[in-house]
Amino acid sequence: MRAFEYTRADSAESAAAEAGKNTRARFLAGGTNLLDLMKEDIERPDQLIDLNRLNMTEITESGDCIRLGALVSNTDTANHPLIKQHFPLLTQAILAGASQQIRNMATNGGNLNQRTRCAYFYDTAMPCNKREPGSGCGAVGGLNRMHAIFGWSPECVAVHPSDMCVALAALDATVQVVDSQGVAREIPFANYHRLPGDSPHKDNTLAPGELITSIELTKNKMAPHSHYLKVRDRASYAFALVSVAAALHLDGNKIGKARVALGGVAHKPWRVNQMEDFLQGKPAEDEIFVDAAALAVKTARPLERNAFKVDLARRAIVRALQKARDGGMV
């Protein structure tokens, strides 16, 4: 960790304005990701803008919209009655991530902006285009068992590590941000994170200095039929090999609407619209799920060590859809 200046922000606008002045500044929320990366000498900010005094700490309801403040902890979000009632998928996804202690510290804004867990990104002795543009990608020809099977580029094959974001993607959330000029805008979740392309150092579509103020969700009819499934190397406290957030709007046995997002497979939570369209109007039956899952992995491009993820993703989609249909929160 290197020396840095510490600034305490007192409003969202002033925080964004401060960040707009210095490209080497970073926002500090729970610190569970940023401080680790600073200790490993991966993030080297010369200024930390502490957000913890900002009043983005509430979950509010207005009409069909539920708004999650950027500074609400992951734990409080998961356990909030409004979330449990309307978005149990989100509760389940958050609780599948990290550990109780980390979730207590972690914030919703920080969760969106957490960085990849690619081992090469984490080791400054190794090449990594995300950490050091132009240095090459260590993982593409190396230990890439944990890496992407969708949407990667030769420049970067990393995956986004969040569980929460997979549920937010399936729930069509929007991200509210404010820029350094004080101008607010709204980003649909599908456009929030990005694919690596030739600029893997950019994880998302935020402009420099832009601050997340909240995340908005619109109530839907899928709460009784949603499920988050996470396949991992140990029973808890491990990142996903593959995860699936599945939500169905069922009309009797008929699928009115389906929302499915995958985690652990791409540089962003992975939605397959083609599969969702396929499911719409069909009966919620195993054979349909199997066909849908096959559609979802059709475009998969595995790397040398992660071919298993293609099959695993297919199976996990089927299981998650079955669980969602059966109304299983377990």
């Binding site: 867990r117 002795a125 190794m126 190397d233 140990r234 029973a235 406290y237 990142f239």
Partner: peptide, 28 residues
């Protein structure tokens, strides 16, 4: 779960942390 992973191209251990080297946790 346990496995120390070496990238043989570099002869370097790539999972030297408790997040990536998986000792069993209580749930296991």
């Amino acid at each position: 779960t346990e496995h120390t992973e070496v990238d043989d191209r570099f002869g370097r251990i790539m999972n030297p942390s408790l997040a990536d080297y998986h000792v069993p946790c209580c749930a296991d």
